[in-house]
Design a protein around this nucleic acid. Structure first.
Lengths: 237, 237
DNA sequence: CGCCTGACTGACCAGTCGGTCAACTTCCGG
DNA sequence: CCGGAAGTTGACCGACTGGTCAGTCAGGCG
């Protein structure tokens, strides 16, 4: 039935969205996005290749044609996830802000990033369940994080030079703490909501939490209990 | 169907393994513990009832006899997990400590609890993947958390009355932040280790992180909420 | 134009899954 | 010492899984 009409030229017809001409890149992308949603929703074992194929309107065999195995697709999804996370983090505008306001912005925006893209958290948790064995070989991923760590170091250094921040901030630990404050709220949103009998999705609660974690990070940086080990002998810049 | 062949005599071998006498409670416990390990290691979908039965040295059917369904066993595992968490939290000795030292102890011990029992994190993540739909009906669980929140409120109130802590601490948000600082380090240990190219299992790094998060929480509690516009002219009130 | 590469499909396979069942064993109250 | 309830087993089932394969089809290139 239904004699297939072939498009006369390779150009996609702008009018009818009925049947796209063959486009491997576009198809791959569809499968990848469907996989991202499916893995995020159900985890690795819970996701089925058949469901992913169905989601992307494609035969199951095609998934294997493009990605080899279920694990291959999963790895591609993880890479895509880190790309998106990096891109989101790079969007945080810190230019023109002093150390204090810059850090406040960074903390709050990190938190907002996790809230905007909860699927990132699901995928990260899944990969941690597997002890990161899929992404371990991907050397591209660590490089994505260097800019973020560098931005933190720059902010902390600027604050230190202006005599605003303590001098003994260890960047890696500090980054973990900063991320954890935002991550946990979102990652454990449902169990926390149940055991604490509150709704963590409330706007007022979210706004209060943003203030809390920004205050906490800044209070730590701005001295708190620890005195300054090395007073900055530099002139005020 | 032909009549089932019955084994001539299912005598337990007298020599090997010394079969325990029948003890339903003990058997249930063995299955529950095996399920805990299996669900923590592989998630809900990744865990197989057969593997759980094998782990506990029991026929698969017996698992269903005791727990009804896979989901029933999973729910029992979740409950057990919260019991263990509560028990661990209650072990934290705060008696005789002032607000500052008590809070420091609480922060560090919460972190240590997560490190000692990483399976708790895996099970919590799994339940959050399912949006807490399994534990939502269990009214016993929220009650477990009340003592912890109460302890926090007691510490914060004591600190406030002694003029050491700020007055506007919201307990729920504060608890989330406090937990998140410890949780994230452990829950994302593997992906963080990969992307940051460090080993989060190092003793020195762990000790430094304990200091960091304790300092951070205390700096928040002790410091004025005002970041930078007003000079630090805060009194104990 | 003809042709070959690669995108794409649908049927299919072997294995695993959660769950059921009848039968057997052990234990305990009467 | 009997009888029934509860504990326990292993064979079994239908549904579904990841993965394969032969073959169809479209389109860019010579």
């Amino acid at each position: 039935m239904a004699t297939r009409q072939r498009p006369k030229s390779a150009k996609p017809e702008p009018g009818a969205a009925a049947r796209q001409p063959r486009d491997a890149v576009r198809t791959r992308e569809k499968i990848l996005n469907a996989g991202l949603r499916e893995f995020a929703a159900n985890g690795y074992s819970g996701a089925s290749v058949e469901a992913i194929a169905r989601r992307s309107g494609v035969a199951k065999g095609l998934v294997f044609h493009h990605f080899g195995t279920k694990e291959g697709l999963y790895l591609a999804v993880q890479m895509r996830m880190y790309e998106r996370l990096r891109r989101r983090q790079n969007e945080t505008q810190l230019e023109g802000l002093g150390p204090v306001e810059g850090m406040r912005r960074l903390v709050i925006d990190t938190f907002r990033g996790f809230r905007e893209m909860p699927w990132i958290i699901r995928l990260m948790n899944e990969e941690n369940l597997h002890r990161a064995r899929h992404i371990r070989g991907a050397e591209a991923i660590p490089a994505l994080y260097n800019p973020l760590l560098a931005a933190i170091e720059r902010l902390v250094a600027a604050g230190r030079e202006q005599g605003l921040f303590r001098a003994d901030v260890e960047p890696v630990g500090f980054y973990v703490a900063l991320s954890g404050l935002g991550y946990f709220y979102q990652s454990n949103r449902y169990t926390l909501g149940t055991v604490l009998q509150v709704d963590l999705g409330e706007e007022a609660r979210i706004a209060a939490y943003e203030e809390l974690i920004a205050d906490m990070v800044l209070a730590y940086l701005q001295g708190g209990g620890a005195p300054f080990p090395t007073p900055p002998a530099r002139d005020g810049g």
